[in-house]
Design a protein around this nucleic acid. Structure first.
Lengths: 336, 336
DNA sequence: ACCTCCTGTGTATACGTATGCACATTATTC
DNA sequence: GAATAATGTGCATACGTATACACAGGAGGT
């Protein structure tokens, strides 16, 4: 059935350990033997068994990636570069898309089939980070952070991003401002809202309770929330959305309701996913380098696993956001 | 470090094999012993080693999924239900997003770390299916098929889908018709084009060479191709796109070029991804049940692996497409 | 009381690779 | 030319789990 190193050894006329050494580039093996072994291995189409190797080396070169919802257009743009960087570092990616993140999932992570975990959609109240730490399974936060600050993480300066959005709205003369924020139990949701509120407060602009909504970072959140907000008086002239996907939902509702963007309503998003620049949207948004963030997370984790980040203090990579002005923002023309 | 079944055995005062039997629900183990073992396992937070189990059982309950590009909005909607169905069948998903699909990738698949493969972006000329068959690694085609017809597959009736699109354009009175098709070396690209051409021919409408483009199933393909097509004379009054993502690219160009859809140009897509129904697009498209297709692929593969599809002939699940009329189609009003 | 059968558990071993250690062979040194 | 060092390879074993098989002990039958 499966070709093993013993088969290769027999054909090459050497012992099994010599096969292992020859193929792994052990310098103590002679050139002649190495050639013989390589030849035999090729002839038999030998591929080393991953399970055997893992059992022996106690390392799998496999990384678990936890995401709640793949169909959210945001995550693929995080996962793709993450995958590529992990491959570059000679690790394979194992994707877990769990709605639950419960104890059930934990066993999947703790069966020693992965060397570490990338947490991309953790909530602030999740017990998973603590559990992983307790079991000595290395992990890194990507995009979102957990409650405990003593972990490796690759994130954006979300608070600054919120401030940037707020300052732009102020600059454009908006006074009736609304916010459709992400979940309060995520670091991204919380920090973007915090920065936004602080900068508005600095400009002495109130963010009314009635102009505030929260929800998951999904299209439907923006769609429903804006429908609500359009009913309020005074109607907001601008709305800041917790991320681009929410903003796209808001734009959808605006279009259906016949509200002109940006003439009657300014919309600002967060993330600058590729769709934001499509002609159908031309979304003004807070940009950051998602690819670099994902790659940084991969590097942090692999460093941690290899121990070159030797039980050192946690390392954080924080990216700078910046505003990208496109077509969904405008100065206030008339407001009563 | 890691807790093993030996540790559990010692604590429970039994032998290691008894631990294995007790935890796996072997009926020959007494209730009392089972309880003791369970208790010890819980106390120690024991999680069985995946590598040890795989080595012993020669099965990993892990499925490889091959996709070229995750950031293409189409694939997440295939991968999400695939993941869920695999989990439901007690298998884990291992994602491989390879630009290459070369021999490099093959070793990843052949190291016995997966029990089977879902091929979601195979080309007709790929040698991978033959290689997998040669190594006795079960696989299933999802969405696209390879050249060899003797494999399990879950696909759409793409030819019928192409015919449906063509008939609709004919019905609407279009005579100057264009096509932006997918790659000719994919079954989806080829069959949709074939069906489209056949149905047009039935209506005695010519599809001019100058009104035909091919390219990867990407946004840019549609965007660039439509820019080209708008330069031709007579300009097409309708364009059929190989899939929705291409169609969205075409809509993007139409919008930028000031071409009114559907008044001046009818656009029809394929797949009916969720974005197609967004207000920004309202894309008329050929719908099929992507979720069911993905789930079917998962079931076919798992059946094949478990051997209940005992070396039987290949099984194909073919889904029926149907037209969904939204806002990007219209009758021809004036044409010279 | 003997034999048989069944139930439950332990013993031995397989799965495939990697590595510490011993050892044989050859090269090096004085 | 003998002692020593360097080089290359094999032997034994570990990694953690699952399973074929042996076997002890008790139940049931006559």
């Amino acid at each position: 059935m499966g070709i093993t190193s013993h088969d290769v050894a027999r054909l090459a006329g050497v012992s099994q350990p010599t096969v292992s050494r020859a193929l792994r580039g052990d310098t103590r093996v002679s050139a002649a033997t190495r050639a013989k072994v390589r030849e035999a291995a090729t002839a038999l189409n030998y591929v080393p068994s991953e399970a055997g190797r893992s059992l022996s080396t106690r390392s799998t070169r496999r990384i678990g990636v936890l995401v709640t919802d793949l169909t959210n257009p945001f995550y693929p743009h995080l996962i793709a570069p993450l995958h590529d960087e992990l491959e570059r570092l000679d690790n394979r990616m194992m994707l877990f898309t769990e709605r639950t993140e419960a104890a059930v999932a934990a066993d999947r992570l703790l069966d020693r089939s992965i060397d570490g975990v990338v947490l991309a959609t953790v909530t602030l109240d999740s017990t998973l980070p603590a559990e992983l730490r307790r079991r000595d399974l290395p992990f890194v936060f990507l995009n979102r952070e957990g409650g405990s600050p003593t972990s490796d993480a690759a994130v954006v300066d979300n608070r600054l991003g919120g401030e940037i959005a707020a300052r732009e709205l102020v600059r454009l003369g908006h006074r009736h401002i609304a916010g459709i924020f992400g979940p309060e139990n995520t670091s991204t949701g919380r920090d973007r809202e915090l920065g936004f509120r602080l900068a508005l407060a600095d400009a002495e602009i109130a963010l009314r309770q009635t102009h505030t909504r929260h929800g998951p970072f999904e299209f439907e959140t923006g769609a429903k929330a804006l429908a609500d907000l359009l009913e309020t008086t005074p109607a907001p002239t601008a709305v800041f959305c917790g991320n681009d996907v929410i903003a796209l939902g808001a734009l959808d509702t605006a279009k259906r309701a016949g509200v002109a963007v940006p003439d009657e309503l300014t919309v600002i998003g967060f993330d600058d996913i590729p769709m934001a620049s499509w002609a159908a949207f031309e979304l003004t948004t807070v940009h950051h380098d998602m690819h670099e963030m994902a790659r940084a997370a991969a590097r942090l984790l692999v460093d941690r696993i290899s121990g070159s980040a030797d039980s050192a203090e946690p390392r954080r990579v924080v990216l700078e956001p910046e505003l990208v002005r496109r077509g969904t923002h405008a100065e206030v023309t008339s407001h009563r």
